[in-house]
């Protein structure tokens, strides 16, 4: 049997690749961190892999705007391959800078369309912030969303964020409506009890408190929080165990995708 493999796409300024690799490895899957220049030289190499990861970091320094230079590069050099990968139904995740890239190349919210219809701007509080937040998944999402990454999560989870440009802005009302209608909004910032949060629990002022979205099919997932930073319960600031096991919420997210490709 062919062994499944994860591709972590890295480039100048990628900096969450090691911990993302560890997270997948702890879920029992092989991982390779591959530099974009290698992939551009051999474009079909991407199809050797079963999960594609756009990790966090500051790709090319986030110069001009977050993820801008990298998404420009991917669109021009790897666009059709990445789109084909997404349409094949294989899992793709973009974390933080990776989410910004997925949105700016237009792989989210709709890889069919492959056009940018939403964007990110600076946090409402005008500064980079690293802190933990509550995220509401909502039972409705759990039952009705197709997102393969967020199965088995409870209604409220906590994960850390670390970003300066995390305010998600859809182009217009109809984009937002369709995200809602199709249950594509997987994570929303929330208060501890699931209500509308205020700063700092709403860290960036995202429209509709959006923290993470997926495509309609549910295989492509992007989120600003960092699930790879909450693999062990010890990584939580209050160091309590919320999962009932020795792991954190982030582990469940990665395990979902691994289980999906191992089916």
């Amino acid at each position: 049997m062919k062994k499944n493999k994860v591709l972590i796409l890295r480039t100048a300024g990628t900096n969450c690749d090691y911990e993302t690799q560890s997270a997948f490895e702890l879920c029992g899957i092989a991982v390779e961190r591959v530099h974009i220049s290698v992939l551009i030289e051999n474009k079909s190499k991407i199809f050797e892999y079963d999960i594609l990861v756009f990790p966090g970091g500051f790709s090319y320094g986030d110069d001009v705007a977050s993820g801008k230079v990298l998404s420009n590069e991917i669109k021009n050099k790897l666009g059709s391959e990445v789109r084909k990968f997404a349409l094949s139904g294989k899992p793709i995740i973009g974390i933080c800078n990776g989410f910004q890239v997925l949105v700016k190349i237009g792989l989210l919210p709709d890889p069919e369309l492959f056009t940018q219809v939403s964007t990110f701007s600076h946090n409402d509080y005008n500064k980079f912030e690293c802190r933990w937040v509550y995220l509401k998944t909502g039972n409705k999402i759990n039952n009705e969303s197709n997102c393969i990454w967020t199965n088995k999560l409870p209604t409220i989870v906590s994960l850390p964020i670390a970003h300066g440009e995390g305010k998600f802005i859809p182009k217009n009302k109809s984009i937002l409506n369709s995200l809602n209608k199709n249950n594509q909004i997987v994570f929303r910032y929330s208060s501890k009890d699931g209500n509308i949060p205020r700063y700092p629990l709403d860290p960036n002022g995202s429209v509709d408190n959006i923290a993470g979205i997926c495509n309609k099919k549910g295989n492509v997932f992007g989120l600003m929080p960092h699930p790879e930073r909450y693999i062990f319960h010890m990584q939580h600031p209050s160091r309590k165990n919320f999962t009932g096991k020795n792991h954190g919420w982030g582990k469940i997210i990665f395990q979902n995708a691994v289980d999906f490709v191992n089916r």
Binding site: Y60, G61, D63, V64, K68, V69, N72, E73, N76, K77
Partner: peptide, 15 residues
Amino acid sequence: DPVSESILKAIKDLG
């Protein structure tokens, strides 16, 4: 100016 350097790279990526 690191930003100008990144822009030059990105211009090349645009072909």
